[in-house]
Design a protein around this nucleic acid. Structure first.
Length: 919
RNA sequence: GGGCGGUUAGCUCAGCGGUAGAGCACUGCUUUCACACGGCAGGGGUCGCAGGUUCAAGCCCUGCACCGCCCACCA
């Protein structure tokens, strides 16, 4: 083995081997365990969020696979309608063409080509991360099987009256020229104005004033409302107003919709361009006047003077015209919420169109119950509040999109405009008894991408067919996802899963936090703070990193600032850390927090951890060859101690996995590996193995324990660090007497029932404290490690002496002692620095070694600390209420502490006096 | 307006009602036989603020402050 661990040499090779050997497919007949992957955009690339999520899913998958479960991690990708179409459209635009010039068929074909071209990227990246998905079951949301599922779902919902077509207001993205759902609208506060406009009475006598943030929509006004209780307008109900600029007359009406406290108390009603007005309009039987076109220009419904103007241009004109006519009373600055399309960034218009909707309330109700009664459990639990909140106020889901890339809606129109829904055109004819020669035209629209995503758990497993996979793995075990798509995806899967399968799609939903940069900022291309997980794995030079961050920006003017900050943050680029280190970092970040700050320093630390493990393995392999002749083996206290510690660690790690606390699991692994196995046990093993006078049985025990502990530790670490553990395991397992082609096929470590040995742990604590005591003296008094110390033992109890005798070799080596002899009875203690271990005092004679003042300072520091503790303990025990009310064991413990403090203080005082006399 | 988080060492974060922890960073010593991506030792926190419950409160309750997210929004 090389002296330094280099991940690059092993990771890709190991993954290829696993894949070739078919290690990722479910096997065995254990209980099923299944995760379906949240399908990433097929043409996208893997970002930190994916890498994080994949790490968690892979850890769970490997854990369950090793635990003997029949484990399926179902992979796949999403066609991501709008996002993908936009990318290809941009490519076209760069060639100077539009999709309309190319035509639908050719355009869709081109998207497919782009999908084939770039679709492999995500899969390649997942392989580099070690994702053990069953590639043989890879699915894409527009695969033929998926299309069937989508069509059947649509047809069935339609036949059940749960899908309908209707003309109403939708959120319209005038740049993409499609409807979008409520969830795809991002509202944000922006600066605007509030225009106060006079609407004269039709009889020419007087006016009312309305306040609006959108003066251009006045062209579509059909009424003005005031509150019925508003004294200012008493008796004016039903009066006619002359709508400025249009020549139309509209009524003034009393309606409780109007808020008397806002503006003038009069509100203009524009049912075709405002959701609230629309409702009032429906209630009051008002007409709809649609004054906007699909690209948000003024339509032919409006006066000729404004037709064809862009909405914002029209606003300026209208305001100017009103002002010219003396109808603009005032303009005030106003903060208002502007709805924008989450993809295009364009201001979304409420717009009147025909769209397809899912009647959602009947689907939501059972989905709410499934979480209420615990058939689905959120982790962390309180996300159910968010889920309930949305589900209980849910609105019908607009599922049609005026795009070309996606699942085309399975509806056909006859010459008379009648709609026929069916599972394909032929089925539509059959269902509706249409003659073969009746010309039918399919609906132009495609379905919201989330419609097919909502079917993902059932469709990937084979639905609508009754496949063995569906029978085995549905409901799936756990969904791993971010809170940002609880509504988009989680809730809809629950609704569809329950509706089409009669069972929940997953039993648990693990909601993880969002990966942000080290400053807590969301990672985004335009902020220039994106990290590519594979750059952390493989490393990247500064120039390449700068280039990567500054090319392809939507706003190229940001490039210089991004370059500057990148050069500042990564003056040397990013070093290669390897996949295992990155994965371990992700695991340790997986706390219950919802914002996770990613810090490269952590990855470095865990890269070092990998190196530590690697070198520990080197030591174990070196220390266990050449092989000893067969014979009996005896376990030393050290062997039993590390076995006991390992067992406790296994329990902690398993608990971590069970609770989805990957951070705690990772921490338990880290601490055991470094602080117990490496720092202590490997050192303990050295005297045993190297001393010429240890016996062979003891040596065999140590070797067996070294190999056995390391082998189990590798299995324990494998779900988080698959590559390095496999690489080392391949070398260690044979020598540990374990057979098998891969660590992936080995059982996950279980707690050993009688491995816990409190007695041994106590004895080893004494040994460690002895060593630490001497080391502290050495460290604080600046004695070089190369200087061997001759220690004396004072006030040693028989147990102390017995323990010392048993562990002398280890203690001498690890504390750097040349000798440690008890004082003879009556012998005066030498001038010395002392470490206290209960009653025992370990004396390090000062002759020629020790700086008196330094030792006095050291003693003073310890005394100050002790006095503080002592005061607290005394105060506690001095309170009668504590002694009376606290549990006896707590009181006893406190008393023992107090006694110990007193003893140690007395000894310190004595020691202080002795040292001070040397001055 | 409604809902949900967060506030613990310089930074990033754990923390079970009973002696405040880790990683990174920092200081000193150390390149000898697993590892300098290492070893040994050390410094550093009145746990956002104010009340309350309790023998005992980062931990439970109430209020407040600040930061953040989600949902719904008055034209």
């Amino acid at each position: 083995m090389d002296k330094t661990y280099s991940p690059r040499d092993i990771e890709e090779r190991i993954y290829a081997r696993w894949e070739a050997d078919g290690r990722f497919a479910p096997s065995g007949d254990g209980p099923p365990f299944c995760i379906v992957i949240p399908p990433p955009n097929v043409t996208g690339t893997l970002h930190m969020g994916h890498a994080f999520q994949d790490t968690i899913m892979d850890a769970l998958t490997r854990f369950h696979r090793m635990s003997g479960d029949r484990t399926l991690w179902q992979p796949g990708t999403d066609h991501a309608g709008i996002a993908t179409q936009m990318v290809v459209e941009r490519q076209l635009n760069a060639e100077g063409r539009t999709r309309h010039e190319v035509g639908r068929e050719a355009f869709v074909e081109r998207v497919w080509r782009w999908k084939e071209e770039s679709g492999g990227t995500i899969a390649r990246q997942m392989r580099r991360l070690g994702a053990s998905v069953d590639w043989s079951r890879d699915r894409f949301t527009m695969d033929p099987g998926m299309c069937r599922a989508v069509q059947q779902a649509f047809v069935r919902l339609h036949s059940e009256g749960l899908i309908y077509r209707g003309k109403r207001l939708v959120n319209w993205d005038p740049v993409l020229k499609t409807a979008v759902s409520d969830l795809e609208v991002q509202s944000g506060e922006e600066n605007g104005s509030l225009w106060h406009i006079r609407y004269p009475f039709a009889d020419g006598k007087g006016h009312v004033t309305v306040a609006t943030t959108r003066p251009e929509t006045m062209l579509g006004d059909v009424a003005v409302a005031f509150h019925p209780d508003d004294e200012r307008y008493r008796g004016l109900d039903g009066r006619k107003l002359a709508l400025p600029l249009t020549g139309r007359e509209i009524p003034l009406m009393a309606d409780s919709f109007a808020d008397p406290a806002f503006g003038t108390g009069c509100v203009k009603l524009t049912p075709a361009h405002d959701f609230n007005d629309y409702e009032v309009g429906q209630r009051r039987g008002l007409p709809l006047i649609n004054i906007l076109t699909a690209d948000a220009r003024i339509s032919d419904e409006a006066p000729a003077a404004y037709r064809g103007l862009d909405r914002f241009e029209a606003r300026k004109r209208i305001v100017a015209d009103l002002e010219a006519q003396g109808l603009l009373e005032k303009v005030e600055p106003h903060r208002l919420t502007i709805p924008r399309g989450d993809r295009s960034g364009a201001v979304v218009e409420p717009w009147l169109t025909d769209q397809w909707y899912v009647r959602i309330a009947p689907l939501a109700e059972p989905a709410i119950r499934a979480v209420e009664d615990g058939r689905i459990r959120f982790v962390p639990e309180n996300w159910d509040r968010t889920y309930f909140e949305w589900m209980r106020n849910i609105k019908d889901w607009c599922i049609s999109r005026q795009l070309w890339w996606g699942h085309r809606i399975p509806a056909w129109y006859g010459p008379d405009g009648a709609v026929y829904v069916g599972d394909g055109e032929e089925d539509a004819r059959r269902r509706h008894g249409l003659p073969a020669d009746l010309p039918l035209v399919q609906d132009d629209d495609v379905l919201d991408t989330w419609f097919s995503s909502a079917l993902w758990p059932v469709s990937t497993l084979g639905w609508p067919d009754e496949t063995p996979e569906l029978a085995t793995y549905y409901p799936t075990s756990v969904l791993v996802t971010g809170f940002d798509i609880i509504f988009f995806w989680v809730a809809r899967m629950v609704m569809f899963g329950l509706h089409f399968r009669g069972e929940v799609p997953f039993r648990e939903v693990y909601i993880h936090g969002l990966i942000r940069d080290h400053e807590g900022q969301k990672m985004s291309k335009s902020k220039g703070n994106v990290l590519d997980p594979l750059d952390i794995v493989d490393g990247i030079g500064l120039e390449a990193l700068v280039a990567k961050r500054t090319t392809g920006l939507m706003q190229p003017q940001l490039a210089p600032a991004i370059e500057r900050s990148t050069r500042k943050q990564f003056p040397k680029g990013i070093a290669a850390h390897g996949t295992d280190a990155l994965r371990f970092t992700f695991a340790s970040l997986a706390t219950l927090s919802r914002d996770l700050r990613f810090d490269l320093g952590r990855v470095e630390g865990y890269r070092n951890f990998c190196n530590k493990l690697w070198n520990a393995a080197r030591y174990v392999l070196m220390a266990t060859e050449p092989e000893l002749p067969a014979g009996p083996a005896t376990l030393s206290a050290y062997d039993r101690w590390i076995r006991s510690r390992l067992s406790a660690t296994v329990a902690a790690v398993r608990e971590g996995f069970a609770q989805y606390r990957f951070d705690l699991a990772a921490q338990a692994m880290y601490e055991f590996t470094w602080y117990e196995f490496c720092d202590w046990y490997l050192e303990f093993s050295k005297p045993v193995l190297q001393s010429p006078d240890s016996d062979d049985a003891l040596r065999r025990g140590a070797r067996r324990t070294l190999l056995g502990t390391l082998e189990a530790l590798l299995r324990l670490l494998h779900p988080l660090m698959p590559f390095i553990t496999e690489e080392i395991w391949q070398r260690v397992a044979p020598r540990a007497g374990v057979e098998g082609a891969s660590i992936m096929l080995q059982p996950y470590p279980a707690e050993v029932p009688d491995a816990a040995e409190p007695g041994i742990e106590a004895e080893m604590r004494w040994v460690k404290d002895f060593i630490l005591g001497v080391r502290r003296i050495r460290g604080e008094l600046d004695i070089a490690p190369s200087v061997p110390l001759a220690a004396r033992l004072q006030s040693a109890s028989p147990l102390d002496l017995e323990r010392f005798a048993r562990h002398e070799a280890v203690i001498r080596r690890m504390a750097g002692l040349a000798s440690a002899t008890p004082l003879a009875p009556g012998e005066a203690p030498p001038q010395a620095a002392a470490a206290l271990l209960g009653e025992l005092r370990i004396l390090v004679p000062m002759a020629g070694l020790i700086d008196v003042e330094a030792e006095l300072a050291r003693l003073g520091k310890r005394r100050a600390k002790l006095e503080q503790e002592l005061a607290r303990a005394e105060a506690k025990l001095g309170k009668e209420s504590f002694v009376r009310n606290a549990p006896p064991e707590v009181v006893n413990q406190e008393r023992e502490r107090l006694d110990a403090f007193k003893r140690e203080l007395a000894q310190l005082a004595e020691q202080h006096e002795r040292v001070a006399s040397l001055r």
